[in-house]
């Protein structure tokens, strides 16, 4: 296989890292916009949707082209397979960011809004997981993702706790239903993003070691 293939594969990988970081920023920035009720910031995040969609298609097409032209094998094949999965998961994460940004306008008029502490903590955990997966993919070193399962358990616990807490608020005071529902959705998106981080980590593990694992 030609040197050209390996150059293109490396470039594809770097661009995928960039795209995944872009998606991660959409999620982070939207949470920040929601926390401080920044409508303009939220609008700006919504405008990134086009970019993430176009990048996803472009990266996927480049991946398909490499498969069609070079039929990669062994590690090269695993890099390609992992890259495709990362692109898909990263796009989902970016879209959750967009969905959260969408809520900013609705939540603004709700009485006594304050983001519940568990969501802030979840956000920190999940973005940390995503950062570490991207770093593991970029450096082909699985050390940063070795304890991901535990971190995802913590995220799941927080998600259940937000769910219960919000449900209690809503039952006590029906005026909190709109706000509570949005909070549940945000927590759910974060839980899903954590799950995507785990799926990406499984694929990075496969890419680096050739072995399939399941991160529960």
């Amino acid at each position: 296989m030609s040197e050209k293939f390996h150059t293109e594969l490396e470039r594809l990988k770097q661009d995928t890292v960039e795209m995944a970081r872009f998606a991660r920023d959409m999620l982070c920035d939207s949470l920040q916009a929601l926390a401080v009720q920044d409508i303009d910031g939220a609008k700006e995040i919504l405008s990134r949707k086009k970019h993430i969609r176009e990048t996803t298609i472009e990266l996927e097409e480049r991946t398909y082209q490499l498969i069609a032209l070079y039929q990669p094998m062994a590690k090269d094949m695993r890099v390609i397979a992992c890259t495709l999965k990362i692109i898909t998961s990263a796009e989902r994460i970016g879209r959750y960011g967009k969905d959260i940004a969408n809520m900013v306008g609705f939540v603004k008029d709700q009485p006594e809004f304050m983001q519940p502490p568990p969501i802030t903590h979840m956000a920190r955990l999940v973005t940390g997981m995503i950062d570490d997966v991207i770093r593991a993919y970029e450096t082909e070193n699985i050390r940063p993702i070795e304890n991901l399962s535990k971190r995802d358990d913590a995220v799941d616990t927080l998600w259940h706790s937000v769910f219960r807490e919000m449900l209690t608020f809503m039952m006590e005071n029906c005026r909190t239903i709109t706000r509570g529902t949005y909070d549940i959705m945000v927590a759910r998106y974060l839980e899903r993003s954590g799950d995507h981080a785990c799926r990406m980590a499984e694929n990075v593990h496969y890419m680096v070691t050739g072995e399939r694992i399941e991160i529960r």
Partner: peptide, 17 residues
């Protein structure tokens, strides 16, 4: 062999290095 070869030589050969 083609998905996850054990030897570096095999890996390097089948990935065209």
């Amino acid at each position: 062999i083609f998905e996850n070869p054990k030897e570096d030589l095999t890996e390097n050969y089948i990935t065209g290095r």
